[in-house]
Write a protein that binds this DNA or RNA. Structure first.
Lengths: 204, 204
DNA sequence: GATGGAAGTTACCGATCGGTAACATCCTCG
DNA sequence: CGAGGATGTTACCGATCGGTAACTTCCATC
């Protein structure tokens, strides 16, 4: 009588997927473990047997979200093999799609806002994820031959992070609508002489 | 036996100040009304007589935070009377100070992350605040004679919003450390020919 | 000094929270 | 088939949540 496919997914994975969705929808503190277990078509005991605590479930969800986000780097390389500049532009495009389509920002950044407690097991996951993303983008900008690659990559990071969080406050017609234009301007400027990106008004 | 000064502040204001601090420290959903009342050296009944519900207290706190944030526009004008460009740069400087010193982002943006519920009374406060900030900065950029003032102001907004939220994930040494450099580069670029900001590689 | 409103106190409500014990059932694999 | 581990079920725990009732005390004002 069981479903052909969906119920063949083990409870652990069902819980993870369901929890990620509900955390996004209601916020981490806005949904309880019992509701998560029921939505995952299982029960609280099974949830606790797999994850031990709500905090660990949160951390595991974020680990999965981080791994999923890391896949985009493979996709970028696969779609633009060897062309680092195209990959940077692809990063902007993918980011823009997320900003426009999702409505809720980065799971890990949102979790950092909701969990100011410094001892929470999720904090380490968040920190490591963000550091890795930063390094990867910086490396990409370097390989793309952009001027001031570290500054450009951090600028792009801030623009995307700002767009995703700002959309949650203002909606899709706010400043986030300019994310692509802003990012492209930054990239374009850094393809010229370095002085163009740094304040420097001396005559040619 | 009462304190000379601090206890002369009415309970309503004590509650608002305390709630703002505790919301910042523990998150909106991470602190209860009873704890807020006690920290404000009063009690739950008085809190509810003044605000009616926790949700309304949240909204009122954000209203106050928004009003306080609006004071910076007066300060900018007072410190740089008539010099719109200097005010834009002052906006960057003040934003950088907040990023570096506060450690926790914009109260209103954080609240938007913690309260995905669209019917929450705080949502309207957040939206109106962010829209007003956007309009004011855009107006400032226009008066400063910058090229593409709307694009520049939204870019600056995204950079600041990104810096404040990213700091909560990565800490002060992450991409947010480049906020000033990024913002100044954007401003500098928009002081030149418009083509400098928009992708345009034609020869001179 | 009397009065009225603001504030404090205590106790309580139902609901929900995260988390656990004990036991029944299922499914897989040897 | 049999056995053992994974899963389901039910009931329960203490704590805390947001919110309220009833009553007392304070304090400024007239």
């Amino acid at each position: 009588m069981r479903g052909i496919c969906s119920d063949r997914v083990r409870p652990r994975q069902r819980i993870l997927d369901t929890a990620r969705n509900l955390f996004r929808k209601y916020g981490i503190k806005g949904i309880g473990v019992e509701a998560i277990a029921e939505a995952a078509e299982t029960n609280k005991m099974t949830l606790y047997r797999h994850f031990g605590s709500k905090d660990e479930l949160i951390a595991e969800c974020l680990r999965e979200a981080a791994n999923r986000a890391c896949d985009i780097w493979c996709d970028l390389e696969a779609q633009n093999p060897g062309d680092a500049l195209a990959q940077v532009k692809g990063w902007v495009r993918i980011g823009a799609e997320r900003v426009l389509s999702e409505g809720r920002g980065c799971d890990l950044a949102n979790a950092a806002v909701e969990l100011p407690d410094g001892d929470h097991p999720a904090k380490r996951v968040i920190q490591e994820f963000k550091v890795e993303q930063r390094n990867r983008l910086a490396d990409l900008c370097r390989r793309a031959g952009l001027q001031n690659p570290d500054l450009v990559s951090d600028t792009l990071s801030l623009l995307l992070e700002g767009a995703r969080v700002n959309r949650q406050s203002v909606g899709p017609d706010g400043p986030c609508a300019q994310f692509v234009a802003a990012a492209e301007a930054v990239i374009a400027a850094s393809q010229r002489r370095p002085e163009t990106l740094i304040a420097d008004d001396r005559a040619r």
